[in-house]
Amino acid sequence: MAAHSQPGRPNQLFRNLNSKIASIPMILTAVVIFLGGTIWTVTYSFTNSKLLPRLNFVGFEQYERLWDTPRWIVSIQNLATYGCLSLIFSLTIGFLLAALMDQKIRFENTFRTIFLYPFALSFIVTGLVWQWLLNPEFGVQSVVRSLGWTSFTFDPLYNSDIVIYGILLAALWQGTGLVMCLMLAGLRGIDEDIWKAARVDGIPMWKTYLFIVIPMMRPVFVTTLVLITSGIVRVYDLVVAQTSGGPGIASDVPAKYVYDYMFFAQNLGQGFAASSMMLLAIAIVIIPWAYLEFGGRKRG
């Protein structure tokens, strides 16, 4: 006897009805905004929309033009440099700080508060502070020169070749505290007995970190990596505040390119194509991770 043929079974649609009603905002957000909005933008990236979105398909024309635009190439190069260095430095510095914090030190809370407070500040505030610190007339450069080293030059925000490092400096100041916190949580999550065993076996501390602890922290590293990466692709406010993309277009980034083409240059098609490229970049990172995290095993 099949169960569904039995009388009195409530309609499946009305089961858990309250839960479904309560989830309507989530469903709308997920389906209409996240899924629908993405599909919409990608679709319109194949049109020649200018001031208003129009469904006049032109194939890959926008993408061809995009990759022919020097400004886009600069912003992609900037993103690549900034992204790679930002990943390497924030992971290294974050882990080193966390390892230092994990030495059963005194004033741990004070140090943590100091390292993490920039994370509470906005990118705008961060950008403006570092704009001031790196001001060649009054900032670090002038202070060092006034100490006697008159030829000292450190003006990243006014030098197109190194401007992206100036932004990196500010970004690391803002974000490494978070990485440190995540790493510290990961270190604290490691069984005390591992340390005891390593000590009894006479393994030096740095070796224990390198060969035992770091491999055990793989999940933390992966999560941190994903978080940093998604932040990197989004970087926008910081550049706007610190350099407004300058000097010239030297510190432009894709997010700024998209914004300018959508809202100033009145070339929506370009903006959509550029944002679709950003989506592609994210997808390359996220999809393998999401597959490992959600696809491989059933999550509680």
Partner: peptide
């Protein structure tokens, strides 16, 4: 929720 079958408590079908 069972996939198949019935449950009776005090002679009343309470499966759902």
């Amino acid at each position: 929720e069972p996939t198949e079958g019935q449950i009776f408590i005090k002679d009343k079908n309470v499966t759902w």
